[in-house]
Amino acid sequence: MNRRGALFSLGAMAAAAATPVRALEMKGYPTDMSMDPAFLPRPAIHGGSFQVLTADIDRRTVTAVFDRLIPADDLGASASEAGCVEFLDMQLAGPFGEGASLYRKGPKLPNEDELAQTPQFIETPRERYATGLAALEAFAQKTEGASFADLPEPRQDAILKGMEDGTVDLGPDVNTKAFFELMLINVREGYFSDPIYGGNKDMVGWKMIGFPGARYDYRLYADRTGEDLGLEPVSLIPRD
């Protein structure tokens, strides 16, 4: 089965599974042993269109940023070649993008970031991308007179470096350093998560570092300490 076919078939499996009826009050061991459909893998399904990064300029900016954070070189594909832009779009379209796990009740107190020692947000990641990407593009237009995506790579790197160390300020609507960190963690997630989520195409990220992926049993290897085991990675996507 090819990668795309596998993604679709897993999605169909999730949709087809019956919802087991679980009474609120439970007596006796549950007899229904089928998978809880909510716990089946939720693969990225590429319908060919983007759900959140719908504007061409936003996709171009994300692609340019991601490909400087993880560029193509002799160690493997770039972030966008590995599917990280599609990965991000899927993540922003789902619970992560909605900030579903966050405690978002206001107000945001003025001492929050200082006491927490890390920035806190009431805004969702989806909102932070919308604001941050627009501000980054405006910054490039203002300081360079061109789109971020059209700048030469050394200029792109200089801006990203400035965002990382706090010397570039994208304006009052954006915590610039935190937006850089958000993009960095998301591109790494795309590059190193299971390919089922749309990134890490051909397990390029795992091959780069030697992570064998979704193997579930190393008992045959555990005694071979200190050896290069040369294990090929496997993914949650069925091989055929």
Binding site: D32, S34, P41, A100, S101, L102, I196, Y197, L236
Partner: peptide, 30 residues
């Protein structure tokens, strides 16, 4: 209700993004 065979069998478990990054087995700060 959460259990081994119905929620985290080997076909579901080895998934860093979902369980370690997104922490979907944990009760969220929300």
């Amino acid at each position: 209700w959460t259990d081994t065979s119905t929620h985290t069998p080997p076909s579901v478990d080895p998934d860093e993004l979902r369980w370690s990054q997104r922490k979907e087995l944990l009760s969220p700060p929300r």
